[in-house]
Design a protein around this nucleic acid. Structure first.
Length: 297
DNA sequence: CTCCAGGGCAAAT
DNA sequence: ATTTGCCATGGA
């Protein structure tokens, strides 16, 4: 089986990214075994299973299930590069971190960590809705139930690799079934509503990325029930690699800002804005690194 | 037991 | 125009 080479520049650590993916939650959307990452996904509507690992200064990938051809190779290279934001030049960010004594440790402790994305916009939106206002352990449990019932999967050597449900499937889902999975009535409505917007073609990655700026993208997303400013920014950061969206009000972010002595009061928006105004273009990275700092060891 | 988690909506001030 | 109540559940 041929290997697919994925070049990675300086300040990239696959290990840090894997650590993040594997931190302490049960995420059914990927599998990590022996420092290799396994991911099931669709390429041109056909299911693929790929394996990704680090080989010296680059990544390598292999198609374990699915037909090897040039289009698939290009897709995978682009997919992985986007997933781990590999092409980002991190030097300016580390230079910003090092200017702040409260944050400089991150440039070493988390060196090479990139924003680990959720490449598919629909999945990113569903996940951010699921994650609203509940603990992450429970959120991952809900996602697993949703994916096991409505998603598809591949099997290899007794392992199961899930693919997130399509918008078509979730658009037709019975709200009562989602409720039985212990999603709240509202979250069930929101997810089905988002799925229907995708099916209807009123929302898509193409439509969103064609908009001129962040605020117009936020507005378009927030016109959908269940998507507020937090969800919009989170999904834009994870799927479209938006660099300046700060999920204001995020409880984890607030906790990290407090513990780093950057703010002294959760509702003091002025001090939060002041902090991020010195990080223009790197707001999303700052948020991601602050989230990273919350994880234990 | 209470409080609050990587929020948002609708009703009530 | 802001504030409050509510949702669902599990862990602290």
């Amino acid at each position: 089986m041929r290997k697919i080479k994925i070049p990675a520049g300086p300040d990239f650590s696959f290990g840090e990214c894997l650590w993040y993916l594997n931190r302490n939650y049960d995420d059914c959307m990927h599998t990590i075994l022996n420092d290799s990452l396994y991911k099931a996904l669709k390429i041109d509507k056909k299911p693929y299973l790929i394996k990704i690992w680090q080989a010296q200064d680059q990544l390598e990938a292999q198609i374990l299930i699915g037909e090897y051809h040039q289009e698939a190779v290009l897709f995978i290279r682009k997919y992985v590069t986007g997933w781990f934001d590999i092409d980002r030049n991190m030097a300016p960010f580390y230079s910003l971190l090092r200017k702040d004594s409260r944050l400089s440790y991150m440039a070493d402790a988390f060196a090479g960590l990139r924003i680990v994305g959720i490449p598919d916009l629909f999945e990113a939106l569903c996940w951010s809705i699921i994650g609203q206002q509940i603990n992450l352990t429970f959120a991952y449990k809900l996602k697993r139930r949703l994916v096991e019932k409505y998603g598809t999967h591949l099997e290899l050597n007794n392992d199961v690799f899930y693919i997130f449900p399509s918008c078509e499937t979730l658009a037709e889902a019975d709200p009562a079934d989602l409720r039985n999975m212990q999603l709240s009535t509202k979250k069930a409505e929101y997810i089905i509503g988002v799925a229907r917007a995708f099916v209807a073609g009123t929302l898509s990655e193409e439509i969103l990325s064609a908009l001129p700026d962040l605020s117009s993208r936020q507005k378009m997303l927030m016109s959908i029930k269940g998507i507020g400013i937090w969800t919009a920014n989170y999904a834009l950061m994870k799927s479209l690699k938006e660099q300046s969206g700060v999920p204001y009000g995020d409880s984890g972010l607030m906790q990290a800002l407090l513990s780093h002595n950057i703010i002294s009061d959760r509702k003091n928006m002025v001090s939060i804005h002041d902090f991020f105004s010195g990080l223009q273009g790197w707001e999303s990275y700052m948020v991601f690194y602050l989230w990273r700092s919350l994880a234990k060891k």
